[in-house]
Design a protein around this nucleic acid. Sequence first.
DNA 1: TTGACCTGCTACCCGAGGGTTGCACGTTCT
DNA 2: AGAACGTGCAACCCTCGGGTAGCAGGTCAA
Lengths: 110, 110
Amino acid sequence: MIDDQVGDVLTALADPTRRSLLDALAVAGQASATVLAAGLPVSRQAVVKHLQVLEAAGLVTGARSGREVRYVVRPDPLDATADWLAARSAAWDRRLRSLKRAAEAPPAAP
Amino acid sequence: MIDDQVGDVLTALADPTRRSLLDALAVAGQASATVLAAGLPVSRQAVVKHLQVLEAAGLVTGARSGREVRYVVRPDPLDATADWLAARSAAWDRRLRSLKRAAEAPPAAP
DNA sequence: TTGACCTGCTACCCGAGGGTTGCACGTTCT
DNA sequence: AGAACGTGCAACCCTCGGGTAGCAGGTCAA
């Protein structure tokens, strides 16, 4: 079950601060927590916590370079989650059509 | 900006109870809060609250039928969110490739 | 070597949200 | 009419998560 990973990604993405954090990281390519905090209305510690959540979800990886940690965005889990959502949507759609057909078709059975 | 709707969908999907609620609704086609509560380890009121969140996100609609309210799943917002995520992932990917190319290619600097 | 800088804890505050209970109201069945 | 069922509202707990402040430790540059 990759279901857990999807759950982590969804909870990670549920927070607006985390979303803008990811956006900032994407345009910067790589950045440290301190740099990222400078562009957001929150403290560095808050950014660090968010980065931990994002890293746990696999959306980001941090690599130490001397005295700073460079974080980089990882598109793969996002992609997987998108697929998961699309599959869900398709399944629901099929299910709804099937039920609708079943409700319309048989005028038999008084 | 459909950004807000995506945010609502993500926060709605972040909760495990809400996800299983959606699954149950999808297989049932339509169901009332009381019926749904019977299949989950939470009270009816909790289910009602979750359904309100889901309805606000557009993932579900409730229609009154006599003394009960039948809820039905709506795949569209899910689909839109999946597209949004896929677009994000693709954008990040392009950005990463671009930066990598820029880092490797130019030993020249005008 | 010393000072400046960035990171990594730890402890703490506080509001939001998931969950519950209890009761009043409309609807259906007998 | 009366009983049974489903819904809606309101008040209330309590945990969790986002946010902050403060301090210790590693790393780079004068």
